[in-house]
Design a protein around this nucleic acid. Structure first.
Lengths: 216, 216
DNA sequence: GAGTTAACGAAACTGGAGGACCGTTATGGA
DNA sequence: TCCATAACGGTCCTCCAGTTTCGTTAACTC
């Protein structure tokens, strides 16, 4: 009756078949999203791909958005390698290259596009997407913290914001401009973020700015 | 039989009723997109809002994507005010504030979200979206050119890329992170883009980089 | 290893989105 | 002013996504 979250830890019998079905459906959903995007997508097709009964998918997830939220929760749990090159630009460049590799991969790029599109239509999916990116960004934030410790970047810098600044231009290309995501773009994004961070552009609790914001 | 683009200049009787219907439907589509997003949207609802027969909408546009492409074409024709403050940071800040105002407006923000989501699902809509942003960016590129002429920014700088760099972090917040689009964010985006431009980050035909790209 | 029941799946049902048909309106041309 | 017809709109029809029903399978318990 209340399918939301029922696919998660709330299930009474999470082992064996249930877990297999969940995994198969989530993989099928990824495939379907990557291949045909978000709009022309129905649960029946996903069920067919997963070799699972239509009814099961409708009952356990109910709506497409519940399924995608669950998929994002699942994706957030898989972690990716970080790096430690010794310099902020080095680490940010590694991050930019990783993001670029992901987004230029036909399957993954299409998948992320579709998930972001889905998030624009549904609040719960949007929250799941935010949690996913928060998890990813948390993994990379330490490289900015190390830069602070080394004195490369001013104290009080918003570490998460620096990581986000690397991704922003790459996602802009993916979603809006459609320009190719080449190496140059990735390196430029990393260098620009590093430069801005060093210049103190991401220091939070910036008095002057906050006062201006309060007045406006 | 071939509805694609038939709502545009291809119509045989573009005056009077036809034009009225087109305008009403496009406005209704905007409303519907802004209010309920892209996913839960059907042409029947749009027809009702426009006070127009369902059949008309299906015949003239056929699919939702044709309608949205047409809407984007229409939006691209409406131009917005530019500025000339005398400095690159000033102009870019004005641009950032304009973009921020647009995206924080509940109606417009939702509309752009929905259009971007639609573009991820359909190539033709994606092209229309790119044309729309190209038009907008072309209007602002001259302020970067003036900065080049003043010697504020190196020769050979990709003017369009600088303008895009201002928007990227704002759209990242709108679509992905969900963080509030406050004044600070807009100013920071403008300052970061200006700083990166001055440092020569957007100079195209950068030999060293291109060679590296060729090798990779 | 036997019983209980959560979870799955096949088949039949239903509502509404999208399309076909055809009469009506009003535009552009003479 | 009148005609030809492009374009609109009401009605009916079709098809399929999403739901309900009920029998089957296989986790968990003791």
């Amino acid at each position: 009756m209340d399918p939301e979250g029922s696919a998660g830890p709330g299930t009474v019998r999470p082992g064996g078949r249930t877990a297999r079905v969940r995994a198969a459906v989530l993989r099928a959903a990824e495939d379907a999203l990557a291949e045909q995007g978000f709009a022309s997508l129905d649960l029946a097709d996903i069920a067919r791909r997963a070799d699972v009964g239509r009814t099961t998918v409708y009952r356990r997830w109910g709506t497409l958005h519940n399924l995608l939220s669950d998929l994002l929760r699942d994706m957030a749990e898989q972690s990716l390698p970080r790096t430690n090159t010794g310099s902020l630009v080095g680490d940010l460049t590694a991050n930019a290259k990783l993001v670029r590799r992901t987004l230029t991969d036909p399957r993954q790029g299409a998948l992320f596009k579709a998930l972001i599109a889905a998030a624009t239509c549904d609040t719960r999916t949007a929250e799941a997407l935010q949690r996913f990116y928060d998890a990813r960004i948390k993994e990379w934030a330490p490289c900015v913290q190390r830069a602070i410790d080394r004195g490369e970047v001013p104290e009080g810098t918003d570490t998460h914001e620096v990581i986000r600044a690397v991704s922003a231009p790459l996602y802009y290309r993916l979603l809006i401009s459609g320009d190719p995501l080449d190496r140059t773009t990735a390196e430029r994004a990393a260098e620009a973020a590093a430069a801005a961070a060093s210049a103190g552009a991401f220091v939070r609790a910036n008095r002057r700015r906050e006062q201006r914001d309060d007045r406006g």
